[in-house]
Each structure stands twice: as C-alpha cells, then as structure tokens.
C-alpha cells in the first residue's frame, strides 16, 4: 500500500538531493560574489527539500533520512538523469535551474491535491520556495537572453540540451498506477510532462528563444528569431546535445556522471556506516 508512496517521495527527494549537490558545487565559484551567496542558498534549499521528502519516506520505512540519502547503491537512486549532469557552465546551470523549477512548480501544484496529508503540506511549503527560485532563474535567463551574443549562444545551446533532458523528470514513477489509485498522485507524470513542454516552449518564446519541438514533444530545436543574430553558428563544445535524452533515472539507470558523483557523495558515510557524524 505504502510502497508506491515511498517510491514517489524517494524519487522526488533524489531529484532535489542530486540537483542540490550539483548546485552546491558552485559555492565559492559562481561568476559574481553576491550571486555566489545567493545561489548557495538555492543549493541549500534543494538539499533541505530532499531532507523533507526523505523524512516522509523515513516514517514509512523506518530507515533514517541519511541512510536514504547516502546509504543506497548507485542503481537504487531514482532521480532524473538531468539532475546528475555536471554543471558545465553558468548558462547550463541557470537553464537547468530554470527548467527544473518550472517542472517542479507544476509537479508541486499537482501534489497539493495529494490524498497524503504530509506530502500535500510539504508540497505547499516547498512550492513557495520554488517560486523564489524561479524568480532568481527568470532574472538570469532574461539578462542573458537579452544580453551580448556570446551569452545568448551559450543559453541556446544549454536550452537545447536541457529541454530534451527534462523528459527524464516526467518518466512515470515506479508503481505510479498504484499511487494514482490511492490518490497519492492526482495527475499522471506523462500528462504533467505534456503541460510542461507547452509551458516551457511558451516561456522560451517569451525570451526570444523560439523552440520547435518534435512530435514526441521532447527533442528541441531552436530557430533563429527575426533579429537574425540570435543564434551563433558555432555549435562546437556541446557534445551533450546529441546524447540520449536522459531517460532511465526513475528506474535507476544512470549515467557515468552519477557513478562519480555517488562515489564522492557517499565517501565519508560509507567509510564508517556505523558511525554518527
């Protein structure tokens, strides 16, 4: 009965933890000192959200939050592959944050209707913080999209890569049918994904980055705007663009990026699993 609920909160927690882990890598190295401080809070927020999701899982499974966060093997993590990708550059990071937080807002809005009290309340709390994150990401996206050509070029490349990979955020959770039956989830992931693509394309359009998506809804191509110079022709250095769209995370299939991240992230915990830290 609760297995499907555990599956959902674990996957949601994993998304937040792994993205928070990546975001935290900017602490000390963001492109502007004030922004360094600002972005670090966002990283901490995401890790805090993960902790809150794991708390629900913990109450259902009896495992501690930390055992859930750091005590599993690589293929037991259920986050979307998008979250584990290296930060690459600031354009990639901001675009990922922007699209992730948009996806998250949609997902949280749906979770605010969940039949599970704790999950419903948590969704309301988190959504407020994600709204703030979105304000942050919106400002950066607008500034870069309307700024000099080099930034716009990087942004377009990042948007191509990231938008395709957001598909991984809307893969069905394990036992999703059960979760819908129980009322833990009210909207199927696939349906949320469809709404997301529509919103994302509109938002990109609003930034002067008109995207054309393929019929399956995920493969994004950006078309030149009337200003003509929107997209520089240089497409080098973006090898990821042709990589698979980042599916498989919800069933524990991750990229080599995650193996490296996992080894780092669980290193101290694994050194002495009996210890308290």
């Amino acid at each position: 009965m609760t297995e499907s609920l555990v599956a959902i909160v674990t996957a949601l927690g994993d998304d937040e933890l792994i993205l928070g882990h990546r975001h935290a890598e900017w602490t000390g190295f963001a492109p502007h000192i004030e922004e360094d401080v600002a972005f670090s809070s966002i990283a901490q927020d995401e890790i805090g959200h993960a902790a809150a999701y794991y708390s629900i899982a913990s109450s259902l499974t009896g495992l501690t939050r930390d055992a859930l966060a750091l005590g599993r093997s690589v293929d037991e993590y259920r986050h979307a592959v998008l979250c584990e990708r290296p930060n690459s550059d600031w354009a990639y990071t901001i675009t990922r944050q922007w699209l992730y937080d948009r996806a998250d807002c949609l997902r949280l809005t749906a979770l605010e209707e969940s039949a599970h009290d704790d999950l419903r309340h948590l969704a309301t709390k988190i959504r407020r913080e994600e709204r703030y994150h979105l304000i942050h990401a919106d400002m950066w996206m607008e500034r870069i999209a309307h700024g000099p050509i080099e930034g716009r070029t990087k942004l377009t490349q990042a948007a191509t890569t990231v938008l395709s990979a957001t598909a991984g955020l809307f893969e069905p959770f394990e036992r999703e049918a059960d979760a819908i039956g129980e009322g833990w989830l009210t909207v199927p992931s696939e349906e949320l994904g469809r709404r997301f693509v529509g919103e994302a394309v509109d938002a990109l359009d609003g930034l002067g980055l008109p995207a054309e998506v393929t019929p399956d809804g995920w493969r994004a191509e950006f078309v030149a705007s009337s200003s003509g110079d929107l997209i520089a022709t240089d497409r080098s250095g973006s090898g990821e663009a042709s990589a698979p769209a980042g599916l498989g995370g919800r069933s524990g299939r991750h990229s080599p990026d995650f193996s490296a991240l996992w080894a780092d992230m669980t290193r101290t915990y694994r050194a002495d699993p009996e210890a308290t830290w």
Partner: peptide, 14 residues
C-alpha cells in the same frame, strides 16, 4: 562539501 556524511552536515557546511 561533496563528502559531507549527512544531510544536515551537507547543508551546514555549504
């Protein structure tokens, strides 16, 4: 930071 042994330590060290 990546090696922090608990969620709380991860957040507080960050």
């Amino acid at each position: 930071i990546p090696h922090a042994p608990s969620l709380q330590r991860k957040m507080s060290l960050t």
